[in-house]
Amino acid sequence: MLSVKKLEAFYGDFQALFGIDFEIGESETVSIIGSNGAGKSTFLKTVCGQLKAAPSAIIFAGEPIGGKPANEIVAKGIAMVPEGRRLFRSLTVEENLLMGGFAKRSGPWNLKRVYQLFPALEEKRNNLSTALSGGQQQMVAIGRALMANPKILICDEVSLGLAPIVVKGIYDALPKITSDGLAVIIVEQDIDTAMRVSDRVYCFMHGRVSLKGRSADLTKNQISDAYFGI
């Protein structure tokens, strides 16, 4: 579904990514791990059109999309849950969710299904997003992205600042999210969680892929060596 080949990315003259290869298929969940500054968020921003890329470096559904504007990439079927949630503070829960459907893509996700996925949101649909707990705000951020009816959902640091039991509840919803063929890319600091919820994992270090493989096949020693560059 998504194929990334020899992707490079820059902040001005500073090169942040060096020849990244990455792929994900329908219904897959793929985690990206790595220390701070490894290039994880830069990779996501480049795939989503926030940073420039060579057109042929990113192929989505058979079409080169590298360097296309972010709004066009959302319209084609890639949506991101950003780090820190980035909710519209002046809007209610339901208004935030409806903003996710601005691209008007057809598909299975609508308000009713988001509320079925996260029942707590329906109870608070008329509350301002700022009145919610951190976990509930993350649910809104995920629901808003799902309202775009993407083919690929990208989640950047879902667990950041949340209690472990809340994180588990959010990740427990993943099978329902991927049941219609939706693919999910997750950037996750908690390595154990990343390995548990994903089919495959990529480890980034200094803007390069230091390890990749099926989550069930990789050992803790392999992950540690790739993570710390041993």
Rank of each mutant, 00 (worst) to 15 (best):
T193P: 00
I142G: 06
L218M: 10
Q50W: 12
G19Q: 05
L162Y: 08
D180R: 07
D156E: 07
A163E: 06
D199R: 00
L98R: 15
I20S: 04
E123K: 15
T42F: 01
A16K: 00
V184K: 03
L98M: 14
A70R: 08
G77I: 03
S210T: 12
L97C: 04
H206K: 14
G34P: 06
K76A: 11
C48T: 15
A120F: 02
C155A: 13
K6S: 15
V114I: 15
L182V: 14
T29P: 00
I223Q: 03
K124W: 03
G107S: 03
K68H: 10
R105H: 07
M1P: 06
G66T: 06
L17T: 11
F60H: 01
L2W: 01
G77F: 04
F60R: 00
A145L: 11
F18Y: 14
K220S: 14
A54V: 15
D190S: 11
V197C: 01
I186P: 00
E188G: 09
L17A: 11
I24L: 05
K151L: 12
K40C: 05
R86W: 11
D180A: 12
L174K: 10
A57N: 11
G134N: 05
L160F: 14
S56A: 13
I165F: 12
S198A: 13
Y11T: 11
G229N: 04
L153W: 09
T92A: 10
R214Q: 14
E26D: 12
E63V: 10
F14C: 10
L218W: 07
G25H: 13
A16E: 01
V184D: 03
G12M: 04
G39A: 06
F43N: 06
V93N: 08
G12N: 05
M1G: 06
I33E: 01
T219Q: 06
L211Y: 09
I32N: 04
P150W: 00
N126V: 12
T178W: 00
S31Y: 04
K168G: 05
Y227M: 12
F18C: 03
L117D: 07
L182D: 01
K124H: 14
Q136I: 10
F43V: 10
I73N: 00
L44F: 11
L121V: 08
G34F: 07
T193H: 06
G207D: 05
G181S: 06
A53V: 01
K52T: 15
I223A: 08
A54E: 15
Y11L: 11
R89M: 13
F88V: 10
M1D: 05
V140M: 08
S90H: 13
R85M: 12
N126K: 15
Q138F: 08
P82G: 12
I170H: 10
V187T: 09
R85L: 13
A54N: 14
D217R: 12
S41L: 01
R89P: 13
F18P: 03
L218P: 05
K45P: 00
S129W: 01
L153H: 08
I73D: 00
I185D: 00
A38V: 01
I20Q: 07
C48R: 07
K40P: 04
S133K: 09
L128R: 13
A53K: 02
K68R: 15
M99K: 07
Q137P: 08
